[in-house]
Amino acid sequence: MHELTWGLPVIAYFFLAGMGAGAVVVSGSVLLRKGGFGASRFAVARCGALIGPFPVMLGTFLIVFELGQPFRALNLFHLINLSPMSIGSWFLNVFIILSVLYAMTFMPSSAGPGDRLAPLRRALAWICVPLGIGVAIYTGIMLGAMPARPFWNSPILAALFTLSALSSGVASIILAGVFFRRKSSDPAIRADYENSSYLLISSDALLLAAELMVVFLFLLFGHLTIGDVRYAMEAIQPGGPLAYLFWGLVVIVGLLIPFFVELFQIVPKLIYDRQFKSHVAVEVIVPVAILIGGFMLRYTIVAAGQITAPASL
């Protein structure tokens, strides 16, 4: 088995950048949309905007220092070419600057809907949403671009990474909400919180369902094909070296359990129009499981791509 050319710092970057970009994208989308979240719209957007930039910056710090010669990274900005990494690093660069500015518009204690900074905040949100999607999607494109790595060489990998990034973003917003928004005795604020919790959990369930679909297709086509891809897929299929991590932590802990828990929570309101009731346990355990799954998804896929190779010389 080869040692990993792209090891833990790169894997952690893929996860952290995806989660941070996902949180900012969700924050921007919530801020820009009309209705739905009602009065809690601003609070949800604020949660996402304030946590988003930190994981992205931490991940960027990790990959820049992983180079061994941090200042060398500036060579990336001498030019732009069609390499996914070149385009991605430009996206990342601009995204970090603008998402920090976007977060800063939420910082003043007077910040609220319709304040002096609102037009700037909306303008930044309009830019940060596509940029954040760019940051989330480019890592998958980057891995998928190489025929030399049959495990990664699939267009669906970019979709998988993007959905996982958005779902991790929502999870981090739910988790932050538990700590910063939940404790309030005011019944109106409580009702708003319940409403936003319902919307976040239901959108997360939708994202998880889409991600399950993509994982299913990824595995199915790995199974239906022959040759290099089929051989590479053995790494995560039962009996492969990464099978337990993939099926246990990614599929069961990271996708199936959170999806069904969320489904059971939202179905009473979604179908029978009953009162939605948020639970602290669900709002902590489900996001943590999703984040574990998101990290392990990057880990298993990045590792599996590197321990497998084309089947013939």
């Binding site: 050319t5 180079l67 010669q69 060398r72 060579n75 990336l76 980057m142 030399a148 590197q306 084309p310």
Partner: peptide
């Protein structure tokens, strides 16, 4: 110009590339 990102090492189907442990 090289920054040592190792993307080319991943992309080579022949494993012909490596990261020079001295220069990076």
């Amino acid at each position: 110009q090289c920054i040592g990102c190792k993307y080319c090492i991943q992309a080579c189907p022949y494993d012909a590339r490596f990261l020079n442990p001295v220069t990076g």
